[in-house]
Design a protein around this nucleic acid. Sequence first.
DNA 1: ACAGTTGGCGGACTGTTGGTCCGTTTACCT
DNA 2: AGGTAAACGGACCAACAGTCCGCCAACTGT
Lengths: 240, 240
Amino acid sequence: MPERHRPSLPLPLPLLEHPPERGDAAANRKRILAAARALFAERGVDGTSMDAVAAAARVGKGTLFRRFGDRAGLIDALLDDAMAEFQDAFLSGPPPLGPTTPASVRLEAFLDELVRLIDAQLDFALAATRATAAGAQVSAHGPLALFVRVMLAEIDPSLDDEVVAELLLGATSAGVVYQLRRDRGIELERIQAAARALLHGVIESGDDGPRGAAHPPIAARASDGRRSAPVRRPPAATKP
Amino acid sequence: MPERHRPSLPLPLPLLEHPPERGDAAANRKRILAAARALFAERGVDGTSMDAVAAAARVGKGTLFRRFGDRAGLIDALLDDAMAEFQDAFLSGPPPLGPTTPASVRLEAFLDELVRLIDAQLDFALAATRATAAGAQVSAHGPLALFVRVMLAEIDPSLDDEVVAELLLGATSAGVVYQLRRDRGIELERIQAAARALLHGVIESGDDGPRGAAHPPIAARASDGRRSAPVRRPPAATKP
DNA sequence: ACAGTTGGCGGACTGTTGGTCCGTTTACCT
DNA sequence: AGGTAAACGGACCAACAGTCCGCCAACTGT
């Protein structure tokens, strides 16, 4: 595969360059990743032990664990690798994902493609989200979330982009897609359409007629005094 | 706790009555659930082995496993228990969640409360979603999803409620809330507001002025011929 | 009240697995 | 070529989910 070239863009991705690596180490890493990919595809992620990966890669367990830290690390590395192409696409690729397109269209294309990608690797994607340590996120999540945030902010600077971005990504997470596709046999297009709907709603009913007003709670008068703020980003820090 | 009384409502919940249970068995189950709850709260779900639960409950491992099948079963039972109250609330409780309220308000209240509940049990909720077998869902998911579907369909029968409901629940899943709250320290209200925004968007820009038109893809003209259908439910089965 | 039977109970036991350790080997630099 | 620091490998370990089966005590019918 081609070296991943992350272009500038105003996205300060904290891409940690791996420090120089000895020749055999690099070779072993490749072998391990390849072997893992094959085994995961064949027997499933859960059905593949680290021993098996090491054996298939003709490598000792020690090597395997030193390279990737632990099981989650291996899976994450694999996922990252699979996402590299996608990241290039929306950071520097051609329209409609690339930077030459209006933000709203890019974001829409992004969600479409994200759902498609997850679906294409459903089992693996699901296993990856489940395998990472509790509370942690797959490392690919960061860049994705950042992209969505930036797009949202560009579309409507008053949006609470930080939060909305996460919800949007949650709505199109592997678990959801799995449930819909595998358990319910629903067509991919319906999922993509629904994701678009969520997106359009949050960016002021589409861009054809911004009506100024945000989406206040339907029931502003309801029950206790809890609900109040609309979708707007809070003024600043709440606690000094 | 009071017997969970699920009233009629047009929700055909497949509530499997537990068949008669011997006295000691029931007592043991209670002890196990209590012990598990305590240990999970104290050491975390991941840090608690089945051995530990059995010991704390003063029960043999055999008993533990026969009752709950496996680790996932225990966690699921616990979660189910925690959700019982919530289910009663939106099935038969007082406004704004209960059946005497318009659907849009109920759904909004539902999301608010769901997020609040997840947050209140963050660690446990997260662990629960991760602990269930790959591809499976926590059993509490079913009733929740059904409720959202029914509400959505009532608000706008042309909506693809089946899919939108899942995305909405995915957007407010434990993983998302965890990420936002723990890792980013974001206030609960912002999450609830964002969830409301997603909801409002999908139900035609709020109920104050339905404009008839759906949310078509922003870029109907874009790229390849993939994207097409709006948020609407497809006519019927696609393959005869 | 009592004996029989069925289901529940307990905890020893097993197989698997993620992860560690350390003596040995090997790539890279001078 | 020689030295050094890093990588390698696979034996080893501890932990843990889940199973098995002999023992025991609730319910049932008389």
